[in-house]
């Protein structure tokens, strides 16, 4: 019977694999081809232009501006989210306070909201004259700012929202990881005189390192994206004056506003390799010895 198993399994996989090939792989492959054409997206006409689109990418000020903003997000968002999530997760799972379960749900809550809802919500929070944030600041006697209207603040306002909406997921992830750490290890460290902070950094962190690594990859991708939140929330969008432009938005605008689908595909392909490179770098750079827990 053994030799019959392969066709049996293959029979089950044919449909999903075909769907995957048609709906996922072939569009990817086509994007790579389109990146080498001047396709405008309204007819079947597309002429081969070679690497012309890629050459243009490098001196398009909008692309460079977007790249800079994505780089800032790449530096800030993952680190801020992971540090915050580690801190909260440690407080919840190691502190053994009552009500930890409730807080875990509360932190996870933003995860349940779609990006569109989050974007609209925070636009209201940030709105200058009647927004929640400026309202609170005014109560404290601090003059409110035009958070999304000021080029020096807008990107930070966007990143705060991205961190806010992402942190809950990682709190839950890290909580689960921390709870699988044997208590004896932490108790032994405490008896040896390690402070809470030392225990967190020297004992807990190495034991949850794999999760942190995964978090960095996911957050890195999120930081290279940021399209939805910027598109919905910011002035312009992508403004004021390109202060919150991200590569995803540049791609979108080139395709759907400027009708340069070929150029947009080139941008997409570049972004693809950028993300791939990032994932490889993070995995390589953060490789550590695996700790086996009893």
């Amino acid at each position: 019977m053994r030799h019959r198993r392969l066709p049996f399994i293959a029979g089950f996989l044919v449909l999903p694999l075909t769907l995957y090939a048609v709906l996922v792989l072939s569009p990817y492959a086509q994007a790579f081809y389109l990146a080498l054409t001047d396709w405008r997206g309204v007819s079947a006409r597309a002429e081969f232009v070679g690497a012309d689109n890629f050459a243009r990418l490098l001196d398009d000020p909008q692309v460079l501006g977007a790249l800079k903003n994505n780089a800032v997000m790449l530096l800030v968002v993952p680190i801020a989210t992971v540090v915050l999530a580690l801190f909260l997760a440690a407080a919840l799972s190691l502190g053994r306070r009552r009500g930890a379960g409730v807080y875990r749900v509360v932190y996870f809550f933003p995860q349940l909201l779609s990006v569109a809802v989050v974007g609209v919500l925070f636009q209201f929070v940030y709105t200058p004259n009647s927004g929640l944030l400026n309202g609170v600041l005014n109560l404290l006697g601090i003059e409110g700012r035009s958070w999304l209207g000021d080029p020096s603040l807008a990107l930070w306002a966007v990143m705060a929202v991205v961190v806010w909406s992402a942190v809950g997921f990682y709190v839950v992830l890290f909580c689960a990881a921390m709870e699988s750490i044997p208590r004896e290890i932490l108790e032994a460290a405490a008896i040896d005189g390690a402070s809470a902070l030392t225990r967190l950094i020297r004992v807990v962190l190495p034991l949850v390192w794999e999760n942190v690594q995964v978090a960095f990859i996911y957050l890195g991708m999120a930081a290279l994206d940021g399209f939805a939140i910027v598109q919905i929330m910011t002035v312009g969008p992508g403004g004021p004056d390109n202060a919150t432009e991200v590569l995803g938005l540049t791609l979108y605008r080139n395709a759907f506003t400027y009708g340069k689908f070929g150029y947009a595909s080139a941008l997409g392909v570049a972004l693809f390799f950028l993300t791939l490179a990032l994932a490889v770098l993070v995995l390589r750079g953060s490789r550590r010895d695996r700790v086996e827990m009893a």
Partner: peptide, 28 residues
């Protein structure tokens, strides 16, 4: 993926799907 809904990846897929539609649309 923590950032659900319109991610770059989904978006690229959609973007790249358009030629299929276009091809269908024009191939007739």
């Amino acid at each position: 993926m923590p950032e659900n809904t319109p991610t770059r990846r989904g978006f690229l897929g959609l973007l790249a799907l358009t030629p299929v539609v276009a091809a269908c649309a024009t191939g007739g």
